[in-house]
Design a protein around this nucleic acid. Sequence first.
DNA 1: AACACGGGGCA
DNA 2: TGCCCAGTGTT
Length: 361
Amino acid sequence: MDTFAADLLDWFYTHRADLPWRRERDPYHVWLSEVMLQQTQVGTVVGYYERFLARFPTLAALAAAPLGDVLKVWEGLGYYSRARNLHRAAQIVVAEYDGELPRTAAELQRLPGIGRYTAGAVASIAFGQNVPVLDGNVIRVLTRLYNIEEDISQQGTRRRLWALAESLVPADRAGDYNEALMELGRLICRPRRPQCDRCPLRQHCQAYREGLQEQRPVRRRRPRTPHYDVAAGVIYGTGSNASRILIAQRPVDGVLGGLWEFPGGKQEAGETLPETLARELEEELGIMVEVGEPVVRVKHAFTHFRITLHAYECRHTGGRPVKRGVADFAWVTLAEMANYAFGKADRQIIAALLERPRQLL
DNA sequence: AACACGGGGCA
DNA sequence: TGCCCAGTGTT
């Protein structure tokens, strides 16, 4: 079982995928790619990565940009705190590290948005430090190689896996080794139907030997997520705001923090959706509306709950908006909405509005 | 230690 | 369509 590292590296050097962040080893590029790859698959990341670097070519350019611009490029990628932390960390690097990313995992981990995984990845890949990484791919490969039966959602199991990963990092080429381990997990040692017949580590794999590879890793089952109905208003203004629509910016902490939305909220027991909408708009923005026709219904899944978002056309009938439950608000045309960052669900409302020849109200 | 945080892939 | 996936920060 000893040294699978040599077999792994041989495989990697012949099968290594050509990805944009692998063309050079610029620390800023490695960092950006690793942050984007958190919780997000390679195929999704590539386009975002290229657009992001085209817009913010250097760490200094990122640090100098307004957060709204960063969120706009991040729009649709999810987990928007990653973008906020990346932006804040870039500003810290410029202010406190003379614009150069620190070179050790320990120093990197002090920056916002950089935990043990990202610190290990950047330190080993960009700076050649001899440190491990442990992400979902590595966990899967290691629990199969060593046929680990412990529940990986347990803290103690994670700690032991980190220790195991650390003990396995080869004395040189840690960056290549770490990338190879994750690449193997992504392409061969996949969650379902692993491609063991193509795996360079088959001879080293204890779970394969027992035919248990598909039973690893062991994970506690998650409880079902609840479902909510949410009402959202497409609120048309009057007078000087005629043909403009009211949008609101969400508070920076919490779900979709800092993103823009069609204001509204969660339906409560015994309420019709138009009643929900009227109540929420009064609570959050202090405005009165006449609720009109439904525009579209959008289903969306978050980690801990699912929502059905019901969009209604509304007419603003009274009260100047105030920032009560929102970070900001704006009256904008449909075309101007392209300049604001929205979540996926609200983007679908915009798409529905764009498909219609004209507003009904 | 437990929970919050988006969106995509796959059967 | 329902289920699975998963780093970091906060509390």
